[in-house]
Design a protein around this nucleic acid. Structure first.
Length: 575
RNA sequence: UGAGGAUUGGUGUAAUGGUAACACACCUGAUUCUGGAUCAGGCAUUCUAGGUUCGAAUCCUAGAUCCUCAGCCA
């Protein structure tokens, strides 16, 4: 199954839940009341200063999903108002990832920077109305005047300049007459307002920088609070959905739109996604990348969409996850196991099976003729008969998983042990008749087994049962491959909160990546990057783009559920 | 201690004055050529205290706890 994202195996979109979230309820009310003429129009407004992560997937799926559910429109719009942080590379990655997730915006791709001229005009309007003024305070002085959470701020000494003077100064700001940080345009609201956001917020700052789309055209740039509502208004957005931290900004969003008297969308806030064992802030993710703690934004351990895709996550699994976590205003942390469950659920139905051995133990079938090879039929996917079968070669020397043999099997261990018989998947029953050890280390280096020719294919004509089925590969035919086994990137459920005196990076899991020299069945030899399959009994794996013709690299997307591991763990605790 | 929010099992959500439910996780068992999947079952919930009501997760009052905000970031 190569190109998992483009194939036609995708299941239909999940049916709408019987109950709807509070945002959809609000949308329904607005439709009923005719607030926006019955229209629904949303947008996803990323800043191109980093890669999209699973939290953005939630946001996209709310924005896009609501537009789709109500036959509305959905805009992709970059909020590129800060040239200091934004880059074209991120624009490209974000577009690619959002498309991969499944969002569709047709020709409605927009950039806030394309509205700069209109925003500027509106700013002049506010200046003329006496609702905005040019302030000569420096950054630290602005802070000092702002007051605190419990005490009011002080008016800027420049607050009462005439409209004419403000207009002149503002135009000269735009013309580039002033140095960075020397002046700002501020809204004239109320320096004593209990909501700090309303204490004469900055609308424009002077920034002589190269903008990724505007070049050097501008040296003043609008602040988020001023720009965002205007962007929504220009595009005719009805419901401007954002995360909880903007709740305190909604009065400002409304104030600007009201002062201008222009079309006024409704902002609604929801809780952002948190996941156990992962960090979700762009700043922290950026730090991981910059410090080389991971190989890049698309490192398979990263919660970025690029990382998840490389890891082997499908858009379907991520969307199902987004559906299941719901939407609410409660700060919450979703168990990462739910994400993993969604992937397993999706891949169980779709991923072809294969056999691969990650930690090989040599097995010689003593009664199998040397130099002889048999081609056995293996089912490609027990969950999907239409997936058909394939041939796997069987010969005298095989590899099985080291952990599938124990010289002294503990209770409930059903796998191979001296004298014990097990089934080799789709092959034969084999019995362990001898153990070869390294005389120096006493480590088991080889197993001697016999096979029962009457059990070809894996069934015994005499009806004798066997308690375990093992995966295996033929040593002679197996393909060497690199297997990258991943664990959580962090050792604690809430890594961003480090204990007193410790950095969040102290929670990084030093064992989050383990590289193994593996052997996989020959049918995988030409698997292309992105190909997803299940290694039977081990987990789901995805061919990494690092693969070359000579060397396959597999990423373990997620393990299979492992009830033996649980039994084993309990046993370890009990003793 | 200002303003704005939030609070239902371990986790995430539902129930919108009328039997507190679903999923994940966890635990049993059945079944199985993947100790997978599947199937059956189990565990466990309304922040607290008052009040209104025949009846409250839902309405009222008081309190508790948690989150966000003092960037010329978004």
């Amino acid at each position: 199954m190569s190109n998992a994202n483009k194939d036609n195996l995708s299941p239909g979109e999940p049916k709408p839940a019987p109950s709807v979230d509070f945002i959809r309820q609000a949308v329904v009310e607005d439709i009923k009341s005719g607030r926006f003429g019955g229209k629904v129009h949303t947008r996803f407004p990323p800043e191109p200063n980093g890669f999209l992560h699973i939290g953005h997937a939630k946001a996209i799926w709310i924005d896009y999903g609501i537009a789709r559910d109500f036959n509305g429109l959905f805009n992709m719009r970059f909020d590129d108002t800060n040239p200091a942080k934004e880059e074209q590379e991120y624009v490209d990655a974000i577009l690619n990832d959002a498309r991969w997730l499944g969002a569709e915006w047709g020709d409605r791709l927009f950039f806030a920077s394309d509205y700069f001229e209109k925003m500027y005009e509106w700013a002049e309007d506010l200046v003329k109305k006496g609702k905005a003024y040019v302030c000569d305070l420096r950054g630290d002085e602005v802070s000092a005047h702002r007051g605190t959470l419990t005490t009011p701020g002080k008016d800027s000494p420049w607050r009462n300049r005439s409209a004419e003077e403000n207009l002149d100064l503002f135009r000269r700001m735009r013309a580039g007459e002033f140095a960075d940080g020397s002046r700002t345009l501020r809204a004239k609201i109320d320096m004593a307002h209990p909501n700090l956001n309303l204490r004469d917020p900055v609308m424009y700052r002077i920034l002589h920088g190269e903008h990724h789309r505007q070049g050097n055209k501008w040296c003043i740039y609008p602040m988020y609070d001023w720009a965002h509502g205007l962007e929504d208004s220009i595009e005719g957005v009805t419901h401007s959905l954002c995360s909880l931290e903007y709740e305190n900004h909604r009065p400002l969003y409304d104030w600007f739109l009201d002062q201008l008297g222009i079309y006024h969308p409704r902002q609604i806030e929801f809780a952002r996604l948190n996941l156990t064992y992962t960090v979700m802030s762009k700043r922290l993710l950026m730090e991981l990348v910059k410090e080389g703690r991971v190989s890049g934004w698309d490192d398979p351990r990263m919660p970025t969409l690029a990382g998840l895709r490389r890891r082997g996550y499908t858009p379907e699994a991520i969307r199902e996850f987004c559906r299941r976590i719901g939407i609410d205003k409660t700060d919450s942390t979703v168990d990462v196991q739910l994400l993993e469950h969604c992937l397993r659920e999706d891949l169980n139905k779709r991923a072809p099976r294969a056999m691969g051995v990650l930690d090989p133990l040599r097995v010689v079938i003593e009664n199998f003729p040397e130099g002889h090879t048999e081609e056995l039929d293996a089912v490609n996917n027990p969950e999907d008969p239409s997936a058909g079968t394939r041939k796997v070669p069987f010969s005298r020397v095989l590899y099985i998983e080291k952990e599938d043999f124990k010289e002294e099997p503990p209770p409930k261990f059903f796998r191979l042990a001296p004298g014990r018989e097990v089934r080799l998947r789709y092959a034969y029953y084999v019995k362990c008749v001898g153990v070869v050890k390294d005389p120096a280390t006493r480590q088991v280096t080889e197993l001697r087994c016999t096979y029962d020719p009457n059990t070809r294919g894996g069934d015994s004509p005499d009806g004798r049962k066997v308690k375990a089925t093992l995966h295996w590969v033929s040593a002679e035919h197996a393909v060497k491959a690199e297997a990258r086994l991943y664990e959580h990137l962090f050792t604690t459920p809430d890594p961003a909160n480090a204990p007193e005196g410790k950095d969040w990076k102290s929670n990084i899991n030093p064992a989050s990546l383990e590289v193994r020299e593996a052997f996989v069945e020959p049918s995988l030899k030409n698997a292309a990057p992105g190909h997803l399959c299940q290694f039977e009994r081990l987990g789901y794996f995805c061919v990494d783009p690092d693969s070359t013709k000579e060397r396959l690299v597999f990423n373990r997307a997620v393990t299979l559920k492992d009830s033996w591991a649980k039994i084993e763990q309990k046993g370890a605790k009990a003793t």
